[in-house]
């Protein structure tokens, strides 16, 4: 129960941080910063709310597969876009 509450508070904190960061003049760095914080939040949700560690190895592998295959798609599309 406590773990969930701490996680929730941490998420709200991260939300605040991401909005604050967006108001800084970071230029091109703003995008990766925003995504990085989102990734952090997502990890908290997966790790605590979705109880990643209590899942079977197959379920964990499925979670990874989704992310990794998305990276395949993104990476190879960007190979084309980046070198046109």
């Amino acid at each position: 129960m406590k773990r969930l509450t701490y996680a929730f508070l941490a998420l709200l904190l991260l939300l605040g941080v991401s909005v604050w960061i967006a108001t800084l003049p970071l230029g091109a760095l703003g995008w990766p910063a925003g995504v990085a914080i989102a990734l952090l939040k997502a990890l908290v949700v997966v790790g605590v709310f979705m109880e990643y560690r209590r899942q079977s190895w197959e379920s964990r592998a499925a979670a990874w597969a989704g992310g990794v295959w998305l990276l395949f798609l993104l990476a190879l599309v960007l190979v084309d876009l980046g070198t046109r």
Partner: peptide, 22 residues
Amino acid sequence: GFLVWGHHMFVSSQSVVASLVF
């Protein structure tokens, strides 16, 4: 098989580098 789709696009004006990778 997920990493080779670009070979359908060799003449589509995809970049030369991408074509070589695919």
